[in-house]
């Protein structure tokens, strides 16, 4: 169990590319933190620096109360689960799980006990003598987890561990990993590009973009109060609606003149207006006109795609309401509005 502190940690590759700009955050003991962002945003580099697989160009990394910038990965008291599992193909499940313990000169009976314990926890008991090639993707992922668990590390690192699994299995493993982490109480850092994984698993989410931290916060903060248009459009499926608007005469107006809400004090000029699809209500008396082009049936609810004031727009409709394509009035809950300035930052 340990805290993790990053103090202006930065990564510049030998070719001069800055993969991670100086980043600082503090992960509490036992916290499950998800690093999320599009590919190439530096999330994996950040994780690999914490693991010690990538050198830290500048800054300070602390795991527990040690500075570990120059500590070998094996001595950082961490365990890592890789995207492609990275199981040793020639070893049985048992040997795979035990390998790290064996290298640390753990006594044989203790290895036996720990492996049996982990196998039981992960339902791998029947597979201990199989080779990884004889296992399904989910089982392999469990073996990789087992390899991490038996070491009793201070910190778990997950590098997109579920992205090689099919959708159904992914949902199941997501819950398993989260439950396991809760039970063991080990501080964990989890990298993913899947915002659903981030939302469902994290205690706190760190959103990265272009090597920069965009926002750190709980899933609900990130979802309801994005600090930038990037976060607003990256998190949530479908993403937040972003409409070009302007502030004039004390109100926020869409192109075409529709008044949406009262403007915050003292701001004028162009802004970006953000609203989550589910915060929009169909209402014949609503101030905005929504031209519905396409209705996406998702079972529990429907997504209505179309245009508001000539700009793409999506809303969310529960399954027991029916609607036809065409022009409809909509109402926006002003308290749910997010306004961003022209650079994309929250007003």
């Amino acid at each position: 169990m340990a805290e993790v502190k990053l103090n202006s940690v930065r990564k510049i590759y030998p070719n001069g590319a800055e993969a991670v700009t100086p980043s600082s955050f503090h992960i509490q003991d036992g916290e499950f933190v998800v690093l999320v962002g599009p590919s190439g945003c530096g999330k994996s580099t950040l994780l690999r620096m914490i693991a010690g697989l990538e050198e830290i160009t500048e800054g300070e990394l602390m795991i527990g109360d040690r500075v570990v910038n120059h500590t070998d990965p094996a001595d950082r008291d961490i365990a890592m689960v890789f995207q492609n599992y990275a199981l040793y193909p020639h070893m049985t499940v048992k040997k795979n799980i035990a390998y790290g313990l064996k290298n640390r000169k753990t006594p044989g009976d203790e290895i036996e006990r720990k492996v049996a314990e982990a196998a039981q926890m992960l339902n791998l008991g029947d597979y201990l003598d199989r080779k990884p090639s004889q296992l399904s993707g989910g089982q392999r992922q469990r073996v990789a987890m087992g390899r991490a668990i038996v070491r009793d590390p201070a910190l778990f690192l997950f590098d997109e561990p579920l992205s090689n699994l099919d959708a159904k299995l992914r949902n199941q493993m997501r819950i398993e990993i989260k439950a396991l982490q809760r039970r063991l109480g080990v501080t964990s850092i989890y990298v993913t590009h899947d915002q659903v994984e981030a939302m469902t698993m994290a205690d706190r989410i760190i959103v990265l973009n272009g090597g920069r931290i965009e926002q750190i916060g709980s899933p609900s903060e990130i979802y309801h109060n994005p600090t930038s248009t990037f976060v607003a459009s990256f998190m949530g499926a479908p993403p937040m609606n972003l409409l070009d608007a302007r502030i004039a005469d004390g109100t926020v107006q869409l192109d075409g003149g529709a008044h949406v809400a009262a403007a915050p004090n003292g701001k004028t000029g162009p802004v970006t207006l953000g609203i989550r699809p589910e915060d929009v209500k169909l209402d014949a008396a609503g101030a905005l006109h929504f031209d519905i082009d396409l209705i996406e049936e998702l079972g529990a609810h429907r997504l209505l795609h179309g245009k508001v004031a000539g700009q793409p727009f999506t809303t969310h409709l529960l399954k027991d309401v029916t609607v036809e394509p065409g022009r409809h009035g909509v109402r926006i809950d002003p308290s749910k509005l997010c306004l961003f300035d022209t650079t994309g930052s929250r007003l």
Binding site: A51, P73, A74, F82, A86, Y99, G100, R147
Partner: peptide, 14 residues
């Protein structure tokens, strides 16, 4: 040979 194998082994203390 996948690079992750080397990295996994490094973390495993090999």
């Amino acid at each position: 040979v996948p690079e992750e194998l080397v990295e996994a082994a490094r973390i495993d203390g090999a």
